[in-house]
C-alpha cells in the first residue's frame, strides 16, 4: 500500500481529552492533597507514550489509585458531573493482582479512550483502579445513576470488554449511597 504524502505524520485524535490522576495514600495529609494530576492527552499516540512511561498498576503499593477521567471532571464524588452518578464496580481476588489486574485496567482504559459506549459515552466520566491489600478494584464512573438505559448499557459493555464470564455478576452503586453508608456494604442499584 502506498503512503500518501503526510500520512502517518498526524496523530490520531481521540473523541475526548483525558486526564490521568494518581492517588497515593498518606494518612498525614488530607485526601485531596494526596491526589495528583499526572498529565492530559487527546491522541492515541500520546496515550501509549503515557502508558508506557507509567508504573503498571500491579506494581503500585497498596493504598494507591490511578484514575482516568475526562478533562474537566475531577475523580471525586463532589464533582458536579459525579455527584448524581455512580460506579460499575469489579472487585478482584487478591491473587488476581499478578494474573489479571494490569490486563483488566488496560482493557478499561481502551474502552474509555476508544469510546466503546456508543451513544451513552456522554454518561461516562472516567474510571478508577484501587490497589488494596484486601483486594483490588476497578470501576467505571457514570454521571447519572437514575439513567437506567445508559447505566445498564455501559455495564454490559464494560463486562464484555473485560472478558468476564456471564456467570460473574457486577454491580452498580450510586455515589450518594456509598457516601452515606454506615458500614462497608453498599447496595447495588443495578447488576449485569
Amino acid at each position: 500500500r502506498k503512503l500518501s504524502l503526510g500520512e502517518g505524520l498526524e496523530k490520531h485524535p481521540l473523541e475526548n481529552r483525558w486526564a490521568l490522576w494518581f492517588f497515593k495514600n498518606d494518612r498525614n495529609r488530607a485526601w485531596r492533597d494526596n491526589l495528583h494530576l499526572v498529565t492530559k492527552f487527546d491522541t492515541v499516540e500520546d496515550f501509549w507514550a503515557l502508558y508506557s512511561h507509567t508504573q503498571p498498576v500491579s506494581k503500585l503499593s497498596s493504598g494507591c489509585d490511578y484514575a482516568l477521567f475526562k478533562d474537566g471532571i475531577e475523580p471525586m464524588w463532589e464533582d458536579s458531573r459525579n455527584k448524581h452518578g455512580g460506579r460499575w464496580l469489579v472487585s478482584l481476588a487478591k491473587q488476581q493482582r499478578q494474573s489479571d489486574l494490569d490486563r483488566l485496567w488496560l482493557e478499561t482504559l481502551l474502552s474509555l479512550i476508544g469510546e466503546a459506549f456508543e451513544e451513552y459515552g456522554e454518561e461516562v466520566c472516567g474510571a478508577v483502579v484501587n490497589v488494596r491489600s484486601k483486594g483490588d478494584k476497578i470501576a467505571i464512573w457514570t454521571s447519572e445513576a437514575e439513567n437506567q438505559p445508559a447505566v445498564t448499557f455501559i455495564g454490559r459493555v464494560f463486562k464484555e470488554r473485560l472478558g468476564l464470564s456471564p456467570k460473574v455478576v457486577i454491580g452498580y452503586q450510586a455515589h450518594a449511597d456509598t457516601a452515606t453508608k454506615s458500614n462497608s456494604f453498599t447496595k447495588n442499584k443495578f447488576v449485569v
Binding site: 492515541v44 507514550a49 474502552s111 476508544g114
Partner: peptide, 20 residues
C-alpha cells in the same frame, strides 16, 4: 462523526516507534 477506535486498532499503536 464520533472518533471511535476498537481495541485492536488501539493496540496496534502500542509498540510503534514514535513518528519523526
Amino acid at each position: 462523526g464520533k472518533k471511535q477506535y476498537d481495541r485492536e486498532f488501539l493496540l496496534d499503536f502500542q509498540f510503534m516507534p514514535a513518528c519523526i
